[in-house]
Amino acid sequence: MPTALSILELSKSYETKTKDRMDAIGSITFDVNEGEFVSVVGPSGCGKTTLLKIIAGLLEPSKGAISFFGVSQNNAMKNIGIVFQSPLLMPWRNALENVLLPIELLHKDKTKYLERAHDLIKLVGLAGFEEAFPQELSGGMQHRVAIARALMHDPDILLMDEPLAALDEITREQMEIDLLRVWEDTKKTILLVTHNIAEAVLMSNKVVILSSRPAIVKKELYINLHGKRGLETRGDQTYVAYCQEVRHSLAL
């Protein structure tokens, strides 16, 4: 499988108002293969959001390089979908219009994408809520809209920044299963940032474990759960063992 995203010795320090510099990312190196679901776990404040912003081109790294399918970030056709920590829907747009936002921003013909927008809304389980405004949707439903929006322009890579962190346990577990289904249906390359160990292990082919700030990669753990992932997986012995291993690496 080709490498979809490659991160090489990436580091980032912020200029702050009080101190002169603040090292957020020490040095991070890892690859994401095409079609893979990779999770990055790390303690709060270790630089996970910073990492995603750099990958998305919203922040300049201090050092290091990023390439998409072997092409360096600056020259690559940026084709990324992002799901942020909060759903970030526009309250003045209904669900359908929110999902269509990427198409407008990329100046494509909206009428050609209406069908795809409806399909995506169905895919995330919101059929019938196309006309609903964000204020009329629950937190979980808003996150579903945000996921559909991130897939709208058919990105090569989907970046997710703790998209489920704000949800309650019940909704969260349901969303994890749904997200897995979306992944299987779309075969997207997904990079998920989370501090939920169970979630990372359940969803991913590979878990990248980061240290606390300034973040370095402590370990890359490949997950092999043999067969379908779903609700029952949580009771699975290998699954529990993987979770233990991640927990252990984080604590080291």
Partner: peptide, 20 residues
């Protein structure tokens, strides 16, 4: 983050202004 969201698609200031 809304500005980030838009900037992840386009660098057009006009879009940023009218859409967000």
């Amino acid at each position: 983050s809304m500005i980030d969201l838009i900037r992840s698609f386009t660098s057009s200031k006009l879009d940023l202004l009218t859409k967000a």
